[in-house]
């Protein structure tokens, strides 16, 4: 069994490479279910509704030019494109690229939880749009 240990995910937001500041990234590829159960059926039935893709990324805060704060702050409330790969190597069947287009940037927390003595982390939450997986 080949188990992948994440060590060098590639994460670009709005075509800006912020991989070295990423602590974790969660991709949710989902679809809404719409119930069509009717009388006479003995179990519930569903059909596919709208896509409900989402993504959440935790970054170490960096206020330097062109890093997390400079890149993320202007994106809140707008849509952008996010590209994530398990490693920085070329796209392949074992290193697929997930391209999240028209992703709405819901929130950005510049100081994280703001606790004394802690490294500030910012969590970026994206929703809407579509995630497409490519292997070539």
């Amino acid at each position: 069994m080949a188990v992948e240990i994440l060590k060098s995910c590639s994460v670009t937001i709005n075509a800006v490479d912020l991989s070295s500041l990423v602590e974790s990234v969660q991709i949710t590829h989902a679809a809404e279910k719409v119930e069509i159960t009717s009388m006479g059926m003995t179990s519930r039935r569903y059909v596919t509704g709208l896509a409900a893709d989402a993504m959440s990324i935790n970054f170490y805060v960096d206020f330097a030019a062109s890093k997390t704060e400079a890149t993320m702050y202007p994106l809140v409330g707008t849509t952008t494109t996010v590209v994530v790969k398990p490693t920085s190597a070329a796209t392949s069947a074992t290193n697929p690229t997930y391209t999240y287009s028209n992703a709405f940037v819901e929130a950005h927390t510049p100081l994280g939880t703001g606790k004394v003595g802690e490294v500030p982390m910012t969590q970026i939450t994206l929703s809407g749009g579509d995630i497409v997986k490519t292997i070539v």
Binding site: A15, V16, L18, A65, K67, P74, T79, T80, N102
Partner: peptide, 24 residues
């Protein structure tokens, strides 16, 4: 910047930035 998709110092046009938030 040195972490944008295109090299620092290069010039890009609108059509190369499709899908991106240029204002941001």
């Amino acid at each position: 910047s040195d972490n944008f998709r295109e090299p620092q110092g290069s010039t890009v046009s609108d059509d190369q930035l499709e899908g991106l938030n240029i204002e941001a």
